[in-house]
């Protein structure tokens, strides 16, 4: 076992790992941060997306030892300091961007990464950026609407489904 230390949501943390310990397992089992979901475990679905040094990655396809020392942000780090929902999370709630919620942590992390790169994306840019995040409930319309709303754009004319 090898102790791996990284900064997760602003706190320096460490946990024991094997070579094969994935970042998703490190977060969930090592640190108890179960907000990061493992959907397909084959890097297709995007439920496990977290930010490593500011970039979205699929944590089920990254070894914890590979990202030792990195800055990691997970869904647990997306709320405001007072515990209220962050802007992307609040927009998902306001626009019904989730049903079962399983894909939501990955959707929120990918959406936040998009908005950091491109603060006012078009609808088509949102759909393109979220290609690697699969939702089996919503049909995506309300997710896209939530991301547009989180970017501060008027979504009154975007049809709800």
């Amino acid at each position: 076992m090898t102790k791996v230390t990284m900064v997760v949501n602003g706190k320096t943390v460490s946990a024991e790992t094997e070579g094969r310990t994935l970042l998703s397992a490190y977060l969930r089992e090592g640190l108890g941060l179960t907000g990061t979901h493992v959907g397909c475990d084959t890097s297709q679905c995007g439920a496990c997306v977290v930010h490593v040094d500011g970039k979205p990655v699929k944590s089920c396809s990254v070894f914890a030892q590979d990202v030792a020392g990195s800055q990691v942000r997970t869904i647990e780090g997306m709320a405001n300091a007072d515990g209220s929902l962050g802007v992307v999370q609040q927009a998902f709630q306001d626009h019904h961007g989730l049903q079962c919620g399983f894909c939501t942590p990955g959707m929120v992390m990918s959406s936040a990464a998009l908005l950091a790169e491109n603060p006012k994306p078009t609808e088509s840019e949102v759909r393109h950026y979220l290609e690697g995040n699969i939702c089996r409930c919503t049909g995506y319309h309300n997710i896209v609407k939530a991301v547009l709303a989180a970017s501060g754009q008027d979504v009154a004319s975007v049809p709800a489904e």
Binding site: G46, P56, V57, S110, E131
Partner: peptide
């Protein structure tokens, strides 16, 4: 290639 998260790795 792939999607944004794949392209970062």
């Amino acid at each position: 290639i792939g999607d944004p998260a794949v392209r970062n790795r």
